[in-house]
Design a protein around this nucleic acid. Structure first.
Lengths: 254, 254
DNA sequence: GGATTCGCTTGATCTGCGTCAATGAGAACC
DNA sequence: GGTTCTCATTGACGCAGATCAAGCGAATCC
């Protein structure tokens, strides 16, 4: 909600000629855009920063902006009347937050880490969308990908054991970290857990205690190592995938 | 996969001047289409029928067609290597099956009831999509709605009790039945369960036995009545919503 | 330095749901 | 009519994960 506008970091400026979030452009909404559409997007964009724990939008609230995650992690979650909470999505850099033609947010969006968003005014963005089929097409593709991810998560929530849930989540983070660093990491690599145990529990449909216990168990079994509670090292990715209940073939790091 | 082409039913013909699935048009892909786009869609469409239990596509398989459900219920499900299965979606009349620009199906699609699909050749449909922004826009909206539904289901799978899961599912079917018959049904109404207990279990992340037991419990508590195993009657929708763990306000039949 | 807080871990116990097994009720077939 | 098959129900039992409770290290604050 409230966030401070900040100058574009010089090191991001250097990499591309247009806008700061172009560092993530190949996966973002604008990835099919030509110079003309990009300049139109540029004209209406602005940036906003959020602190960890800060609410970006609340469920049921009207949102007048939407845009891309430039940096940090955003959680989407639903809460039942009695307080039970389920995280329904985690958004990383280049992911699109907010839904065109749907001004009412159906879930809470909260900054998990320090977050920087590249935002567009809703009505302007929707107008641009009408005139820019290539942008709409990209948005459709991203939404389809999110739908796939959501359905994968349904399998996890409905059918996987606590151990498998944890292992799956760690495998996803490991894969992300590997592709971000262009590491093939045949002999193990490390990454930071952006979430607290409580946030993991909300994401995985478990309690804090179960999360903690299962992580301990995975450590004891040598599947993962932890430098501290937030720093994870995976010695053998295939072993982790196996613990996640997935066939190793389908889940290789590419 | 294998299905028989059939003539368009005369009674559907009568209602509209274009195509049989126009009976469901106001909610389907083509709902924003003008006469010109409709005739283009008409030119490339064909129909296919499936028997209950029949596989429409298997996970990992290439699909050369996509389209709308005209009649019947289709399940989308994922299966783990060891056989655990989770249904990730139920498609009813007017829902769109198959994903443009994604020729490999990520899950099994199976006919739950007798199903009739209105299909389009993939490449032709995608070409049409490129030239018809209004169609693309509609598809984006439908995908956003599906994403919402998937995320609602994540809350159910991750945080709801067996009793709440059953009640939620029955409430969804009850609401569907009510809107289909234009019933407000302040004093109860009945509907048919399209799924077997096993399919319900796969949808809700439970076992057959638990589904059966919880239905028995809901009957004993007077929340629902069953004429037989497949025919359900809801005396008071608000009571059912309460059992589903939802606030009655948000879930009223409109 | 002491007190408080926060995030995490660990232990003890409880319970909701899964597992295993038996039975019943229709429907289809010989 | 009897057999077989499928689908649903019910009971007995066990276990994975929730709940309740305590303790621990590291910040933060006074």
């Amino acid at each position: 909600m409230s966030g401070t506008e900040r100058m574009i970091a010089p090191n991001l400026r250097k990499q591309h000629d247009r806008c700061a979030d172009c560092a993530i452009r190949h996966r973002a909404v604008c990835s099919y855009c030509g110079p003309q559409e990009l300049s139109l997007l540029d004209a209406i964009k602005f940036y906003r920063n959020y602190e960890p724990g800060q609410e970006i939008v609340a469920a049921g609230e009207r949102t007048d902006f939407l845009g891309s995650v430039v940096d940090g992690v955003v959680s989407l979650s639903k809460t039942m009347p009695d307080g039970r909470r389920q995280m329904v999505g985690l958004m990383f850099a280049s992911d699109f937050v907010g839904r065109p033609m749907r001004p009412i947010a159906p879930y809470d969006a909260i900054a998990v880490t320090p977050v920087r968003l590249c935002l567009f005014n809703r009505t302007r963005f929707e107008r641009l969308l009408r005139d820019t089929p290539v942008l709409e097409k990209r948005l459709l593709e991203m939404t389809l990908d999110e739908l796939d991810a959501a359905r994968d998560w349904m399998l996890l929530l409905g059918r996987k054991s606590a151990r498998e849930k944890i292992a799956t989540f760690l495998a996803i983070l490991a894969r992300r970290a590997a592709s971000a660093h262009n590491t093939h990491a045949d002999d193990g690599f490390a990454f930071d857990l952006p979430l607290t145990r409580e946030q993991m529990a909300d994401y995985l449909g478990l309690t804090i205690e179960t999360v903690s216990r299962q992580i301990t168990a995975l450590k004891k079994d040598g599947v993962v190592e932890f430098a501290d509670a937030r720093r994870c090292l995976v010695p053998d990715f295939v072993v982790l995938l196996d613990a996640a209940g997935e066939d190793a073939d389908g889940g290789m790091i590419d």
